[in-house]
Design a protein around this nucleic acid. Structure first.
Lengths: 196, 196
DNA sequence: TTTGAAAATGAGCGTTTGCTCACTTATCTT
DNA sequence: AAGATAAGTGAGCAAACGCTCATTTTCAAA
């Protein structure tokens, strides 16, 4: 018996993430991936059934990693404001520290592969955030609202900021830079809108 | 001389939009498009230089259409709250009435093709919204902030809601449905956060 | 009615795609 | 040392890819 070389499967995974993040999902291919990972195309099919399986498997792994990072130091008993701030810091830190993973994830979230991925991850989100939001409503900190409305108001602005930062786009003349100061400024707007 | 058949070029454009919206950018191809549009592959190259030119051209057209629709009944002299509500209604109406265009646009905004597209459109956005925001700041309705922060707080939640609606995802048990009531509820949160 | 020029095409080019197979290599157990 | 088994591979298949070209079709101008 021969043991599997963990360096190999890791090289495949990391190359896939980097390739999708940098060249886009539309330019991702198995032969290309094999070359980038320094591996035979056939080797990839030892670990993954096909191209779709590879992409969805990796995206679920990365998504769970992201969800976990998001919950560091978070408890559903926290006050609404404190809890949301912890979430923002965690999410921003993850997106900036692991920006290849974050961009890979974004690519898949906007693709035909998204269904299985979202399904696998929304449970973790649901169970962690459900109680937190419910507690905040019970305590009278925020109004009752659909979870989708909550997510859209509470997190979409943050991810939009990160996107502006990563893409280096600018709506004005100078280039936009994400910073703790900008994040706090945006957070203050958001929390003001959410609190009763 | 033979005149160009406008039905043909329109069929190409509409098929391209539908195909990208439904199957994703990663499954879009010229031969496939030709078949769907009822046209020879060679015909496509009469109107577009290559695949990239086709996608960027169409995305710029659709983007400008979207920007125009967004400004219907809008004036940069409006009060901040009234102006933003007009924008929300216009943007939501466009996204729901032309959901293939909107999904096509979203696909390209998250791809390697985005650069030329964003460049072409952000001017129109800039000139229309710049004054409006500046006026609101001068009148003391909102605080001064980077345009990116403004966009992220003012519009990202709306687009997030539309995405939940179109993708039929749900964060909870029942399926989420976008409605004027939900939109107003979300708008109230956002405007409360933005106004001084 | 003829003619010229642009529109439109089907066949198919060279390349790349996702994926497989016959085979070699490495490492365990005996 | 030999045998067994899974890891890993290079070459390459069929199909699909982006794109072109020799040719035909169309129609306003002459």
């Amino acid at each position: 018996m021969r043991y599997r070389d963990e360096n190999k499967v890791q090289a495949i995974r990391e190359s896939a993430i980097a390739m999708v993040a940098k060249d886009g999902l539309e330019n991702f291919g198995i032969n290309r991936l094999a070359k980038a990972a320094g591996v035979s195309p056939a080797t990839i099919y030892i670990y993954y059934k096909d191209k779709e399986d590879l992409l969805t498997s990796i995206s679920i792994e990365e998504g769970l990693k992201m969800t976990t990072a998001t919950l560091k130091g978070f408890s559903s008993d926290m006050s609404f404001k404190e809890g949301l701030w912890v979430q923002w810091k965690n999410r921003a830190a993850f997106a900036l520290d692991n920006h290849l993973s974050a961009e890979f994830f974004e690519q898949l979230r906007n693709s035909t592969y998204k269904d299985k991925m979202v399904e696998a991850i929304s449970d973790a989100f649901q169970s962690a955030m459900g109680n937190y939001v419910k507690n905040a409503i019970d305590r009278g900190e925020i109004n009752e609202m659909p979870l989708e409305v909550y997510w859209s108001v509470a997190f979409a602005p943050l991810y939009s900021l990160i996107k502006f930062h990563n893409e280096g786009q600018s709506l004005g003349g100078r280039k936009f830079k994400f910073s703790e100061k900008v994040m706090k400024e945006t957070f203050d707007c958001v929390i003001k809108g959410l609190l009763k």
